[in-house]
Simulated scan of single mutants.
Amino acid sequence: MPSNVEIKAALRDMRYLTQRAKELSGTDGTVIRQQDTFFKVPAGRLKLRDFQDGTGQLIFYERPDTEGPKLSNYSITPTNDPQGLVKVLTDALGQVGQVKKERRLYMVGQTRVHVDSVEGLGDFMELEVVMEEHQSREEGVTIANQLMLELGVKEEDLIDGAYMDLLLKNQQNAHAP
């Protein structure tokens, strides 16, 4: 199963981080609009990513919900009918919820740098060090930590969990007495 080492952080200064990502990648990045629908599963996470252009990906992944670098194992398959697949999976499994975001993707070496504006949450940065077969988790963590420093991301800005978790937590807090 493919794997990556991830870091996710809240952004204090989106402009600065975006500029650094441009410099490190040598590109202006690629804008991707996504709607992720999460489904109820007994273990891990299952989401259908709709790229809003008639294509999508069904993604299953497992990773710990901890701050800092974490290993994520995943499986991905493409689809040309994301809306139909959302309906079938919702009928079969039930939905946890949806995350809508605009993502700017920068490639820095083997790392995907995501600068995300998440509807209802705000701005975030996500690093995904795409692991090669021969690499250890420790090598991925080293790469992620180094890139985090180069991007000016502070340890206190790191977050755990997925955007879906943060949205659900916000909903629970809004309904708390």
Rank of each mutant, 00 (worst) to 15 (best):
P2Y: 00
N4R: 03
E6A: 03
I7T: 04
I7V: 12
K8M: 10
A9V: 01
A10V: 11
L11R: 06
R12G: 14
M14E: 13
M14W: 09
L17M: 10
L17G: 06
T18I: 05
R20D: 03
A21L: 07
K22I: 05
K22L: 04
L24A: 00
L24E: 05
S25Q: 02
T27C: 05
T27Y: 05
I32V: 14
R33M: 07
R33Y: 08
Q34T: 00
Q34M: 00
Q34L: 02
T37G: 01
T37Y: 00
F39Q: 04
F39C: 06
V41C: 07
P42W: 08
G44Y: 08
G44T: 06
R45C: 07
L46A: 07
L48P: 02
L48F: 04
L48G: 02
D50R: 04
Q52N: 13
D53P: 04
D53W: 06
D53S: 06
G54Q: 00
T55Y: 07
L58F: 09
I59N: 05
Y61G: 05
E62V: 11
P64W: 06
T66I: 15
E67N: 09
E67I: 11
K70W: 09
I76N: 12
T77P: 03
N80R: 13
N80T: 15
D81I: 04
P82A: 13
P82Q: 08
P82I: 11
P82F: 13
G84C: 03
V86D: 12
V86P: 07
K87H: 14
V88F: 15
V88Y: 13
L89C: 05
T90H: 12
D91Y: 13
A92M: 10
G94F: 00
Q95E: 15
Q95T: 12
Q95S: 11
Q95N: 03
V96Y: 01
G97N: 08
Q98I: 12
Q98D: 14
K101A: 05
R104W: 09
Y106S: 05
Y106Q: 06
M107C: 10
M107S: 13
M107I: 14
V108N: 07
G109A: 09
T111D: 04
T111S: 03
R112S: 08
R112M: 06
H114N: 07
V115Y: 06
D116W: 01
S117V: 14
S117W: 14
V118Q: 02
E119A: 10
G120S: 00
L121P: 01
G122I: 03
G122C: 01
G122W: 05
D123K: 12
F124S: 07
F124W: 12
M125F: 12
V130E: 13
Q135W: 15
Q135R: 09
Q135A: 09
R137V: 14
G140R: 00
G140A: 04
V141L: 00
T142W: 12
T142K: 11
I143E: 15
I143V: 15
I143F: 14
N145D: 15
N145Q: 15
Q146W: 11
L147P: 01
L149A: 10
L151C: 04
G152I: 02
E156N: 14
D157M: 03
G161I: 03
G161F: 05
A162I: 01
Y163W: 06
D165C: 01
D165A: 03
L166F: 07
L166T: 00
L167G: 02
L168K: 08
K169V: 10
N170F: 10
Q171H: 10
Q171E: 14
Q171F: 07
N173F: 12
H175S: 13
A176I: 07
